[in-house]
Design a protein around this nucleic acid. Structure first.
Lengths: 109, 109
DNA sequence: ACAATCAATCAACAAAAGTTGATGATATCA
DNA sequence: TGATATCATCAACTTTTGTTGATTGATTGT
């Protein structure tokens, strides 16, 4: 039989790391609405371009962001399948673990 | 109208941070099966007790672990609701973002 | 009370991550 | 071609995180 516990890939760990910084989380929150170029993000977050570049790299290496070039702008957007991958990794804890999480029971009086 | 984007709580960011280290991930993988005391974890992971204590603290402060004392042992176990909280934070990216993740289409020829 | 076990904490150190300002690369426009 | 704008990269530095070995506190058994 197959092993029950799926070890997380490096990408999953890198994804959690990428989401462990408030500024990077702010970036993905902004990108939820629409894709943005680096200078848009700089303005919105009021941080230096070099600093942002550093954090965008972390997010991109974790496969959470995509980028495309248009003229001299580089637009960043969410790579949703990787968010789903992280979500699914977490969901397995619910599936196989003995304890169930507290659930709001709509049948309760 | 309510704001569409829910900013993650500090606990969520702390949770991602806690899961951003391979050793800490190994700990939660082990605890999926059953609760374990520190010395069990030390043996299983072959790391110094002091080192493990450091990482257990990070996981516990992120509310991902619970602990209870029994005699001179301290048993750690998963706090599943917090895993669910992280999962739900990630799931909102799917809900509100314009792009949908690639899905296997069963209607396709 | 004493010795032994388990685990948290501490201080000193090592390693990794983040910041800053400058430079370099590429694309656009005049 | 030359000037400008956007963004990545780099080196030097600061801050945070992780490691190690020792100590401390608490619990158990003798």
């Amino acid at each position: 039989m197959a092993k029950a516990v799926s070890l997380p890939s490096d990408l999953v760990v890198a994804g959690f790391h990428a989401l462990s910084d408030p500024l990077r989380v702010s970036v993905v929150e902004l990108l939820r609405e629409k894709e943005l170029c680096v200078c848009d993000l700089c303005d919105a977050l009021n941080v230096a371009q070099s600093k942002l570049s550093f954090h965008l790299k972390a997010l991109k290496e974790a496969n959470l962001l995509r980028s495309r070039q248009e003229g001299r702008w580089i637009y960043y957007s969410l790579n949703l399948p990787q968010f789903v991958a992280l979500e699914q990794y977490l969901s397995e804890f619910r599936r196989y673990s003995p304890m169930l999480p507290a659930r709001p029971c709509s049948n309760q009086d």
